[in-house]
């Protein structure tokens, strides 16, 4: 089994998939770093002060102004109200939410990336894992070895888990190293608030507590890893079912993007919450970002993702071990 996983991982590396993904990260992280720097910088200039309390105060006032505008839809009003509440909480407890420093950037980056960016990279990694063997005809050589089919598929799946883990590790390391050039490498111990809960569109703050940032980052990356694995597993199934690499990649990219769009377009459509792609943004629960679709919480999302992954795996294995290789 070890040598089979070695084979599959070796192919992922030699196909330069990992390299492509790393390059994308190498280009995007500096851009995000600069964007973050600009945001902090311009806010400071606007206020004419580098006092973060003043910035936070200004943000609250801005949002209160937006609230009074009658053009805003009711569900957005609620969102803004919740945001204000959260910022007020930071202010009251004397906590700077944007303290620059590369650990903060790491945290912010993964919070932003779990919803769309990481899933897209995972799709790139996973989409052609099985379908490329079909397209290249090498499946005929792979399946005529004295190795049962389920072992071959399992070795591919394990190598996918390995490369997703590697992807997140690379994301963490690169975002830490690159952003540190501008923001400095301090801030591991900064307290971060977590434990926000949503109930009937109200932000419950009774369980809110502070954790050191390194702990928070660990949790955030853990959750990102979980949702990345879920996307990877669903993509893996599509890759088993569809023969062409372009078709499997296209289908999965469309699904991931549609998932993020749908939750923003139709937050009142409650059945949406059973779709895996709506539940990818697990770090939202950690950060206490308001959830648009009602009835979603961390255990719920974890369950939805786990069920989807399990069903995908079963379909993939049943289909792969039974199917006739006709072309």
């Amino acid at each position: 089994m070890v040598s089979l996983v070695y084979n599959e991982f070796f192919k992922i590396i030699r196909k330069k998939r990992m390299l492509v993904v790393t390059l994308i990260l190498l280009i995007l992280i500096p851009i995000f770093t600069y964007a973050q720097y600009q945001a902090v910088d311009s806010a400071m200039k606007q206020l004419g002060t580098s006092d973060w309390r003043a910035i936070l105060q200004q943000q609250i006032i801005d949002q209160q102004n937006r609230l009074s505008s009658s053009r805003i839809a009711p569900e957005w009003k609620e969102y803004i109200r919740l945001n204000i509440k959260q910022q007020q909480y930071y202010l009251d407890h004397d906590i700077n939410p944007t303290t620059p420093g590369s650990p903060t950037f790491m945290r912010k980056f993964i919070e932003q990336a779990t919803e769309l960016f990481i899933p897209l990279l995972v799709v790139v990694l996973a989409a052609d894992l099985v379908s490329s063997e079909h397209a290249g005809g090498t499946i005929k050589l792979l399946l005529t070895r004295p190795v049962p089919r389920w072992k071959i598929l399992l070795s591919k799946y394990l190598s996918l888990l390995l490369s997703i883990s590697l992807l997140l590790l690379i994301t963490a390391i690169l975002s830490y190293l690159i952003s540190g050039i501008i923001f400095g490498y301090r801030g591991w111990d900064m307290p971060v608030l977590t434990g926000f809960q949503m109930e009937n569109e109200h932000l419950l703050t009774e369980n809110v507590h502070m954790v050191p940032q390194w702990k928070y980052i660990l949790m955030a990356y853990g959750l990102a890893w979980f949702s990345a694995i879920a996307v990877g597993t669903i993509t893996f199934m599509v890759s088993v079912l569809v023969r062409g690499t372009a078709a499997s990649m296209g289908a999965m990219l469309a699904a991931v993007v549609a998932g993020t769009l749908l939750s923003q377009v139709a937050p009142n459509w409650h059945e949406l919450k059973y779709i895996a792609f709506i539940n990818l943004n697990l770090t939202d629960y950690l950060a206490g970002n308001p959830i648009l679709v009602e009835g979603m919480n961390l255990p719920f999302s974890l369950t939805v993702l786990a069920v989807w992954s399990l069903v995908s795996l079963i379909i993939a294995f049943v289909s792969f071990t039974r199917r006739d290789i006709l072309a």
Partner: peptide, 23 residues
């Protein structure tokens, strides 16, 4: 079976080693 389809992005030796590891 049909055309001799091997992994085009690997070298000949890597292809052989790949299939050797499966037995």
């Amino acid at each position: 079976v049909e055309n001799p389809e091997l992994y085009p992005y690997l070298t000949g030796r890597e292809n052989l080693e790949h299939f050797a590891r499966m037995v």
